[in-house]
């Protein structure tokens, strides 16, 4: 079993509680306008557009076809991903769960767990299940960062080895959600309920993008929808300010929300009874 891995960050402070190794999988099934790592969306088609722009010769053509990436020559200038016509990256790697686990193991005992993200990591549920089983045997915790478009209830085996999910709710209104991401949010909201009921909802993430959708209304309605589930299991709501870093040129013009606006959104959630609200 193999999956395409975009990168592995040995120590991450922003992908769940404590210090975690974050594994980013390649490939996504939706198209968020504000995506800040669009190079994780597509799968490389070996077109070679990146080879010509690499300033250090870290990229070349393989004799047998395909692109060869030499990590030691790479200076992380990102020229390759900027020119990629398929929202992909030549720096990805096909790996087995065992190979990913080897890269996680190095960080023991400095980490408390791993987080998998993407792209959309739930496109590889069987891979995740196998990786999580290996990682859990070492006493580490496992978190999934997901856009929620794949129904978690269809993967009870994976859920058994998953400690929690960080779930995006990119807009509460279905039409607005479609405008932001290209897809509806029915499954996402059903996932939120399912995960909350099973005490697997670690965090709900909301990216606030003034001008793209009505965040105030969305947060208010989402809060009212989620608040009953706090009784079974408390979870965090993270309000994330849009930032233009990494965003594709045609979508980079949105405004960064100010602190006052974010605080007002947090206040709406507090009024509903939420206690663990983080602005970032």
């Amino acid at each position: 079993m193999k999956a395409v891995v975009n990168r592995i960050i040995p120590f991450s402070s922003v992908d769940g509680p404590g210090n975690r190794t974050a594994v980013f999988f390649q490939g996504c099934n939706i198209d968020c306008k504000y995506c800040h790592n669009p190079e994780t969306r597509g799968i490389c088609r070996n077109c070679g557009a990146c080879v010509d722009v690499c300033p250090t010769g870290a990229l070349s053509y393989r004799e047998e076809g395909g692109i060869c990436y030499d990590g030691t020559a790479c200076v992380q200038c990102d020229a390759c991903i900027h020119v990629c016509p398929h929202d992909s990256s030549p720096r990805t790697q096909e790996m087995t769960p065992e190979e990913v686990y080897e890269r996680v193991k190095r960080q023991i005992p400095f980490i408390r767990g791993i987080s998998v993200s993407g792209g959309e990591c739930m496109l590889q549920p069987d891979f995740l299940k196998q990786l999580f089983s290996l990682v859990r045997a070492d006493g580490l915790t496992t978190l999934i960062d997901s856009n929620g478009t794949i129904p978690f209830w269809e993967y009870p085996g994976l859920m058994e080895v998953t400690d929690g999910v960080m779930l995006d709710i990119k807009a509460f209104d279905a039409a607005e959600h479609r405008n932001v991401t290209g897809v509806s949010n029915e499954t996402i909201l059903a996932n939120a309920v399912y995960l909350a009921k099973h005490a697997k909802l670690y965090e709900v993430r909301v990216v606030v993008v003034p001008g793209l959708y009505d965040a105030e209304r969305s947060v208010k309605e989402m809060g009212a929808f989620l608040v009953p589930y706090r009784k079974t299991h408390d979870f965090r709501i993270k309000l994330i300010a849009f930032r233009p870093m990494g965003v594709r040129k045609q979508y980079a013009g949105y405004r960064v929300p100010d602190a006052a606006y974010l605080n007002r959104l947090a206040e709406l959630l507090r009024d509903l009874g939420f206690r663990d609200i983080m602005i970032t």
Partner: peptide, 15 residues
């Protein structure tokens, strides 16, 4: 960003 996740530092100290 670690201001919001002091456990990150404590995990490193423990390890």
């Amino acid at each position: 960003t670690v201001h919001r996740n002091p456990e990150f530092v404590l995990d490193i100290v423990k390890g």
